[in-house]
Design a protein around this nucleic acid. Structure first.
Lengths: 272, 272
DNA sequence: CGTCGGCTTGAAAACATTCAAGTAAGGTGG
DNA sequence: CCACCTTACTTGAATGTTTTCAAGCCGACG
């Protein structure tokens, strides 16, 4: 069982041309990108900025300025509550683009903060808009990626609404495994998870104390192991069963042939 | 206090040209639409289909076909769970457009079902795509609307993760009040709410029994009253305080001047 | 006039939180 | 290099919110 899951992950990784940046890796799950597409996306990621850990990149109430691409490290989308609490909505991992869409708004309704030190590439609004006009296939891929994000939000709602603590944790771990796999940041079912138990709790609507107990339970049942911020899912099958996890919502299977033909046609039109 | 909130709602309604369909009403909160924009959106909504209550319009696993506009009635986005449970993710009210964006996907990861009988206008993918090419201001408004939806998903996550049952219910009621107000379906703080307590529970991660008790509490404290599917929020101020509700996340304040100028320029370019 | 779905209420049980205390690990300055 | 400090993790016990199970009620609709 375990080995079958491992093979799946490996095969996925092999589908994607290696040695590329995580964004192109991720987008290749939707549609094959031409060398010129890939070059363009690489250029996009060229000017680079660094932030230390535990810092806000974007703060609630700010006017959204530029979009940015996360190249390395981990960040989170979160909101502080009047009572001092915090709810983490999403984790951002390499290859994630934020906030492609939010720049239409007058002000941010949530914050984005770093968890580890990160490298990001700020992208000017104009460049993104230009891309949308000139590159149908890239536009479609970016669009697909933002749909994937939305699906993850919906899935989080299901977790918080209908799963118990163990299910929520198992679900989150599975999701993070597949997301990391999609950008080539796993080996087998092992990946870096630099989250504290408090952060897990703030994501899943649990107290750190309870997260601790549940994690302990998963360890004792031989489902996971963790050391030095490295997580190993020892029995993915059983974890997925526990969580009612089904990775379809990540839509890693690519676009339908019909949609692909449509965008290829647009692409040719554009070239002429 | 109560009267102040009522005035707010009324003023909002007055900002929007009356007698229009709910979609143009909603989009006018983002940017003023020209008569020609409005005509185009009305045409979009012309071929009409009806569905009875308690029926799936779109089912999980289906290939997404056309986008559709909800013209009348109420529907929900939901997912069934292996254990027989159900999680409702969003309610769809008149003026809501679903799934503008989902048609890129191979298959739906959730279902859309009716709550009341509904009237919908199916819209062909080609028409939407055409709109995006030809009408920058409408495109921007549609884009804004889908950002609003995403913000509502995030807000639901906050509710489920960090609010207790009373806060969750109060929050949902406030959200629905403002959404209905934005499409002209309130009078003061009264609107139609055709939901059962089970549906409320499936939305907020609570059992129907508990929803009942909390609702009873709100009634006894004079915060709401309900009869014949009509909900009256008797003390919006206090409900919002209870929920930690702040309507900023609905982004009803319109676009920033800068963004508006940008799209006006595009619009002129298009005309020439 | 009976049945069905939705609403209401009570009592017991389960799950998660809070409070409290203690341990382990990593980083800093003397 | 060690003492100190800080942050994260761990565990126990008491409390509290929400669920589950169970039963009765009401109104709509055949």
């Amino acid at each position: 069982m375990v080995r079958a899951a491992a093979r799946n992950l490996d095969r996925h990784a092999a589908d994607v041309p290696p040695g590329n940046n995580p964004l192109t890796r991720k987008l290749s799950h939707f549609a094959p990108l031409s060398p010129s597409d890939r070059r363009l996306l690489n250029d996009l990621a060229s000017p680079e900025e660094r932030f230390p850990a535990d810092v806000d990149i974007v703060t609630e109430g700010m006017v959204p300025r530029s979009v940015f691409l996360l190249k390395e490290g981990m960040a989170m989308r979160y909101r502080n509550l009047p009572d001092g609490g915090r709810q983490i909505m999403t984790f951002l991992i390499p290859g994630d683009l934020c906030d492609m869409h939010v720049f239409l708004l007058k002000e941010m309704d949530h914050s984005i903060g770093t968890i580890t030190p990160v490298r990001v590439a700020p992208i000017l609004r104009e460049r993104i808009m230009g891309l949308f006009g000139a590159r149908p296939r890239i536009s479609a891929a970016l669009w697909w990626s933002s749909m994937q994000e939305e699906a993850m939000l919906r899935e989080r709602i299901v977790s918080l609404g209908r799963r118990d603590a163990r299910g929520r944790i198992a679900y989150l771990l599975c999701e993070l495994l597949w997301r990391h796999a999609a950008v080539g940041l796993t080996s087998g079912e092992v990946f870096q998870l630099p989250l504290t138990q408090t952060e897990l709790g703030d994501t899943l609507g649990l107290t750190p104390v309870h997260v601790n107990r549940v994690l302990k339970g998963l360890r004792e049942r031989g489902l996971i192991s963790m050391s030095q911020r490295t997580l190993r899912l020892l029995d993915v099958e059983q974890l997925q069963a526990l969580a009612g996890f089904n990775k379809d919502y990540l839509h890693l299977g690519g676009a339908s042939d019909e949609v692909m033909r449509y965008f290829d046609a647009l692409e040719e039109l554009q070239q002429a």
